[in-house]
Design a protein around this nucleic acid. Structure first.
Lengths: 232, 232
DNA sequence: CTCCATACTTCCGGCATCCGGAACATCCGG
DNA sequence: CCGGATGTTCCGGATGCCGGAAGTATGGAG
């Protein structure tokens, strides 16, 4: 993401005329659309790094555009709106928007908030849902796991646990984090369950379950999914 | 993160009185501090999931508090401020703040923006800063420490001690502070343990344990983690 | 109904860590 | 030189965490 691509969905031409040069002058690539339909189409084809979305579009309700976007993309969305009602802000933010700027706004603030939104997605580009490492293959989209070419069947809980570990991308997952994500809130405290199902995952997915390479235990803290098979 | 812990750093008591019950009523755990010094100390000891920071504190400039926090943590920070100047907003956002709310604000909007900030740490993981200094590498988020490229295994206590030092960011940590943070309140007095475990850290993380460059002892006071390896 | 996979529960042994004490070396200021 | 604070190394014992091996429900498929 060297030159982030920003998509502007905004019907007022005067505002577009202002936004496009402002953003272009900041090493951003800019796309713009004047209607919801056009904007959604562009989002699908170009997959921008960030979307500036006006809520007051002529052809469709802005909230439904946001919902549509969120159905398939997690890219940051910054709302621009003439409506300054708290109700609108809360609705948009809870629908998945990352920020909400009421018109009129200053260029400097807009740029700063864009930087914040882009900062969030810098570190974690979870674009690739397929993970391969040392004979292990995890395809979260298709729910297909395989070890050394052989497909592996996982039970519901085993899969939820694996998913929680994968989402952490190699970082530690706390006992309580895993327990509440897999067994639901209230499951904290039963660290035994974790031990049992980690043992299952190891038995099914490790070459040598007694010396795990991928499913690492962090004593006193939790577990971690190691994705560099190189480390030995 | 089942019940996210939120730290409020705010000097106006009336606002604190309003914020605390508002947040507590939303399944959040709440901590509050009235001064910058107190707030930073609480952040270091409790490591909250989100910080609400007032920029107009009496004892210190809010921006310097933000900078101090950002030196060791990427946990979301939402700024509350009476200043509504664009200049202030841009400065705070670029310094690492995640959102900026100008007073007066509505409770619903604040809660929505808190939800957004917490959502970011869940899905699009933000990484804590990685501290590097003279061959020493400390990644608090992944709990990975390495010295000269070699990964180093730390025990639970060693790690807690190192974490307490890192959060002080080069400032001295007194004996009693470290003891109560690592060994729990009541552990004060056993300066012996400190010597033992500081020795461990030095053995594992210093190039020449007999002449420490990073783990400096401040006689009669405590210890300090030196992060400029340049000083020799 | 029976069979079987899954989920939950319990028990136990191994092992790293941690505690607490002791001894001894070192450094520094008075 | 002396005394205090600090650094380093040993050891035995206690603790707690982890992993493995059971056994016990539950619920669905045949």
């Amino acid at each position: 993401m060297n030159q982030p691509l920003i998509l502007i969905i905004e019907d007022e031409e005067s505002l577009r005329r202002f936004l496009i040069p402002t953003l272009s002058g900041q090493q951003y690539q800019v796309l713009s659309a004047a209607t919801a339909a056009e904007g959604l189409a562009m989002a699908r084809t170009h997959n921008p790094d960030l979307v500036l979305l006006d809520l007051g579009l002529p052809d469709r309700d802005g909230m439904s555009v946001l919902k549509d976007l969120r159905a398939w993309s997690r890219k940051p969305v910054v709302i621009l709106s003439a409506r300054n009602q708290e109700r609108d802000k809360v609705a948009a933010l809870d629908q998945g928007a990352d920020d909400y700027l009421a018109k009129p706004f200053g260029a400097a603030e807009l740029l700063a908030r864009i930087r914040v939104a882009l900062r969030h997605t810098l570190s974690a580009d979870v674009a690739d849902p397929v993970i391969c490492s040392g004979g292990l293959r995890i395809d979260l989209e298709r729910r297909e796991i395989s070890q050394g070419g052989r497909p592996v069947k996982l039970t519901a809980l085993e899969y939820r646990l694996l998913e929680a570990l994968v989402r952490r991308q190699g970082k530690v997952a706390t006992h309580s984090q895993l327990l509440s994500e897999v067994w639901g809130p209230g499951g904290e405290g039963n660290t035994h369950y974790l031990r049992i199902y980690m043992a299952m995952l190891r038995k099914k997915l490790e070459v040598d379950p007694t010396r795990p390479r991928h499913f690492i235990t962090e004593p006193n803290v939790g577990y971690r999914l190691n994705l560099d098979a190189s480390s030995d």
